[in-house]
Design a protein around this nucleic acid. Structure first.
Length: 579
RNA sequence: GCGAGCGUAGUGUAGUGGUUAUCACCCCACGUUGCCAACGUGGGAACCCGGGUUCAAAUCCCGGCGCUCGCACCA
């Protein structure tokens, strides 16, 4: 678990020196928790985002949306990010250290996290709680601790309260209606969003791992909880994942098993969760994360948000130890229900057709509203609601009903009329459940770099190679004239231009001044997989050499052939490498 | 937020009150060079910010900012 400080330092300074990632605003002394992606890093970030996006879009029933990062208070209040569910912090007036109020009270009152600020203050005084760092009992008032960045809409006056979003998920939930219509009202479907999230961390640590503004990518996959879709892919796959189930959370060693047996044994509680775990593993390994350093850790029941029924963190092992990079949570109907109730909208539901229509033929007591209103006045609505919810209608009047708040009222002649209801019910509205894989993109980029960074020795000196997979390397190839004479720079420029002309190909050129060895080394250090060298023979017969980054092996090809195989992605498979 | 340590070119560093601020890598130009961080010549580039003490501060003191670690925090 320990941090490899030496490696972190080396990697950080390389990332900075080569323009990959470095602290932001260093011109003004730097700002904790904010990072810049430089020219190379921004390319890598872009490619990771694209790979992530395409991975999901290719499923066929998943689309991308893009919603604002500025989110009004009401949305985040409904989601539980602000308001009653906030944790409270108290500061010690003697030593200024800050503690969580509910943690201090844990052994003294039950459910301390449900108390208000005033109740917390009272409980702290009543139980004579002492400060864990200085031992005194001299507290300031408890204050809600909110890790979101607040703002207001409008430059003057008391504009509408808003926050920078702490996650992208709320955009997908508030868009459920349009998404449901886009998918022609058919579940399951998903929506993804890539973008910035903001959390005002008390103290950001561990470099890129905990930032105040970060790149996230989330998928919200909406399902019918009663639909037991069978997923052949799970049972056809023989891939084994490293799992750390909640049942043996004390254990530090993982269990290796296939997803089908994990689901059959009940460890993974929902097949879609299992499917997304497999997808996550596939995507991460494609990006260049070492499969042996990926594990899935199941949340313990007390760690899981109260609405979730199952949650797995995908952790990647790197120079900081095991770090959570992806969370896959079964969130049930919590989010859509929360927004439905806060917005009083009926839009966040889906329709489920019954296999066979239900024929209804029953006698019901229908309220006569013109009479119930004057009799019950402010309680009239509650009475009508309770009448509608009666399962077995009594045969005769009068009878008693129980209101929502527990009070009983008597229903007498004149308040209701008996009516026979005959109808066909074809289906019902329900709140879909949602399964959410949430990716911390910066953490994934960090681990891609961490796993790719390879320090070897060459002639007694350090030699660094960034062994990035081709799909995330910043340039497809670098073009190098061997010498700055005999027409080599001109041919190099021509090859470079021809590569540029191909859609989607981004080449680099390193033409002047330095020896060929140094220029190979520069390319290796930022992970360029192929180096195309223009030499004396190129001048004579139009052939060039191609050097493979990972083993420095070189082959020779005609320029046309090279451009074709590079642009079609077949260069790695050329039979010439075997010769 | 608390505590401890630290902050010198792009990177890694030397420098305990008076230096033209050390060294290496690096970057650029010119020349040389027949393929893996070559060589020659020339050039570029730093004391985190602000205040104080002192004739004099990179160096001592205070504050801020930043980094690392421990505690707390990570909804």
């Amino acid at each position: 678990m320990s941090v490899d400080e030496e490696r972190v330092r080396t990697l950080m300074s390389t990332l900075k020196r080569r323009g990959i990632v470095y602290p932001a605003f260093e011109l003004y002394g730097g700002v904790a928790g904010l990072f810049d992606y430089g020219p190379i890093g921004a390319r890598i970030l872009r490619l990771v985002n694209e790979m992530w996006l395409n991975h999901w879009l290719k499923k066929g029933n998943i689309v991308e949306i893009d919603s604002p990062t500025i989110t009004p208070n009401e949305v985040l209040e409904a989601s539980g990010h602000v308001g009653a569910f906030n944790d409270h912090a108290v500061q010690c007036a003697s030593c200024n250290s800050v503690s969580r109020a509910d943690h201090l009270l844990e052994n003294f009152v039950s459910n301390p996290d449900s108390l208000s600020s005033t109740e917390l203050d009272n409980a702290i005084h009543a139980n004579n709680i002492v400060c864990p760092s200085c031992g005194k009992s001299n507290w300031n008032n408890a204050e809600p601790m909110n890790l979101m960045f607040p703002t207001r809409l409008g430059p003057v006056g008391d504009g509408r309260m808003a926050f920078l979003r702490p996650e992208t998920a709320q955009g997908m939930f508030t868009n459920f209606g349009p998404l449901y219509r886009h998918f022609r009202q058919r579940l399951p479907f998903g929506a993804v969003q890539l973008g910035k999230g903001y959390r005002n961390e008390i103290s950001p640590r561990q470099g890129m791992i905990r930032q105040r503004e970060f790149n996230m990518a989330e998928l919200e996959y909406f399902i019918d909880p009663e639909d037991s879709e069978t997923l052949d892919v799970i049972f056809d796959s023989e891939i084994e994942l490293h799992l750390l189930p909640e049942s043996d959370s004390q254990s530090t060693s993982t269990t290796q098993m296939s997803m089908s047996s994990a689901i059959e044994s009940g460890i993974v509680r929902h097949p879609i969760v299992g499917k997304f775990m497999m997808d996550t593993h596939e995507l991460l390994t494609t990006l260049g994360i070492d499969s042996a350093r990926i594990r899935f850790r199941q949340h313990e029941n007390n760690e899981m948000a109260h609405y979730a029924s199952d949650c797995w963190d995908c952790e990647i092992h790197g120079s900081y130890g095991w770090i959570e990079c992806v969370g896959i949570a079964h969130r049930g109907c919590y989010d859509l229900d929360a927004h439905a109730s806060a917005s009083s909208s009926g839009e966040l539901m889906a329709w489920r057709e019954y296999e066979k229509p239900i024929e209804v033929d029953e006698i019901r007591w229908i309220p006569i509203q013109a009479n119930i209103g004057p009799i019950f006045r402010q309680d009239a609505a509650a009475v009508i609601q309770s009448l509608e919810q009666i399962e077995d209608s009594p045969d005769s009047l009068p009878f008693d009903i129980t209101l929502m708040d527990g009070r009983k009222v008597s229903i007498k002649d004149g308040m209701v009329e008996s009516r026979r209801i005959q109808k066909t019910v074809n289906g019902e509205w329900f709140t879909p459940h949602v399964i959410e894989p949430a990716f911390g993109i910066d953490r994934i980029v960090w681990h891609i770099l961490d796993h790719a960074f390879d320090r070897t020795e060459k002639d007694g000196e350090n030699y660094d190679v960034l062994r990035l997979n081709e799909c995330v390397s910043p340039y497809h190839a670098v073009v190098l004239p061997l010498f700055n004479k005999e027409g080599m720079p001109e041919i190099a420029k021509d090859v470079f231009n021809r590569l540029c002309a191909h859609h989607g190909i981004v080449p680099s050129i390193d033409a002047f001044g330095k020896s060929i060895g140094r220029r190979y080394a520069r390319a290796d250090e930022i992970g360029i997989p192929w180096a195309i060298t223009i030499d004396h023979q190129s001048v004579e017969d139009g052939s060039v050499t191609i050097r493979r980054r990972d083993d420095q092996k070189q082959i020779r090809m005609q320029i046309d052939e090279l451009i074709d195989s590079l642009c079609s992605g077949n260069l790695a498979h050329s039979t010439k490498w075997n010769m």
